[in-house]
Structure formats: C-alpha cells, structure tokens
Amino acid sequence: MNTNQNIPKAKKELVVEILLRLADDRLIHGHRLSEWAGHGPELEEDLALANVALDMIGHAAALYKYAAEIEGKPDEDHYAYFRDDIDFKNVAMVELPKGDFAFTIARQFLFSAYSYFLYEKLIETVGDEQFNGMLQKHFKEIKYHFRHSREWVFRLGDGTEESHERIQHAFDEIWMYTGELFSLDDAERTAIDKNLFVDISELKEPWLALVKDTLEEATLTLPDDDQYMFSGSRQGKHTEHLGHLLAQMQFLRRSYPDAEWK
C-alpha cells in the first residue's frame, strides 16, 4: 500500500486539507467546551466558556464552508457530520474529555497560545484572500481566548493549594499531546511550498517561551518536554475519545440524512 496516497498535490486539494485541519481542531475543541454549558463553576464563567465555544464552532463552520465551496460539497455540515474519526484531522489534545475546570483551562491556554502564533504567521503567509480574511477575523477572538485562559492559569496556579495541584496535574497530563502541534508532515511541507501554510516547527520556540513564562508566574512547573509524545492525529490516528464524541455529535444527522435540519 502506498502510504503517500493521501497527500494532496493540487493546490485546490491542499487548500482544503489545510482548511480542514484548522477547522477540525476548532470544532472538536468547541464541542468539548460546549459540554460545560449549565455546569460551569460560576455563572459568569459559564457565559465565558460558552462564548469561547461559540467562537470556535463558528470558526470551524466558516472554514468548512469555504472548503465545501472549493470541493463542490453541499455545505459545511458535510465535513462535521459525514466523516468518520479516521478522516478527522484535529490534534488529539482537543478531543480529550473535558475533565475538570483546571484541565479545561490548561488545554485552552496551550491551544490558544499555539493558535495565536499559528494565525499570526498564517496571516502573513496565506495569499488566498478569502482564507486570509477569515484568519484575520478569527485572530481577534483567539487573542481574547488566550487572554481569558492565561488569566485563569495565574489564578489557579497561584490560588489555593488545591487549585495549584489540579492545574499542575492538568499540564502534566496534557503535555504528551503538545508534540504533534509542532510536527510537520508531508502535506504541510507541500502546502508551505505553495504559500498555504507555515513551518509550525518554528513556532515551538516562541510558544514554549510564552508557556514557560506564564507557568513560572503562576508558580507552576513546566512539564518535562523530553518525554513520549503522542502523534498521528493529523493523519487520522486518534485517541479512543474521538469516536465517542462523533457518535454523539453525528447520530441524529446520520440517522435521518435526507431530512432538513438547518
């Protein structure tokens, strides 16, 4: 079997590949955040988490919609509802169960910081006007997600003994999923050549510096970066959690695919 068969060559296919990678991260992360609705630690934070979730699902929908236009698919729902887990291209970090509030915040902080650097570079690079316009619009919201989660990292890290322990534990647990945020694959290398993507491995350094500073200020310890790192999600090799998430998300739409649901 030719393992390279899934690497798109044409520019059109590459754009779609990149759009879906960005969109899947956001849909799945947004979905996990949406599970907090009605269950947040305080009313104000319930609103805040829902806002971030809405932003992320909105970003995903816009990116999918553009991909659908390019590919001639009916609409954005095609990608969210009619693909299986092996077709999803999100990183594993975002599909992990929502955990406690510390886990949610640690993940949101790490992911928002990553998105911040990624979007900043993408906006400089991507020539496609429509794509770039979306990136610019979403970047503003990403900055807010970053600010919100970072403030909470300070509060939980330097709060009580319990909160300190919980968020330290969360960072330790998530760390093995941070590796694949920065590992380039062949599709991305090809996309870089066509000005559709950026060298994410170069983002690791500024990202790590920012995370290190934040954790230090929050009296937390940076987890050991030299440890086993989970990999392969971008190529469809996910954790077991994604399948369950999709089973829930897709069941109604797939049970009655011909009905009108919009």
Binding site: S34, E35, I57, G58, A61, Y81, Q248, K262
Partner: peptide, 11 residues
C-alpha cells in the same frame, strides 16, 4: 447541544 443536527442549529 452536543447532538444538534447541524452546525447552525448547534450554535
């Protein structure tokens, strides 16, 4: 929320 049948309806 997690089972809404389209992205629009989910949002």
């Amino acid at each position: 929320i997690t089972r809404a049948p389209s992205l629009k309806r989910k949002m």
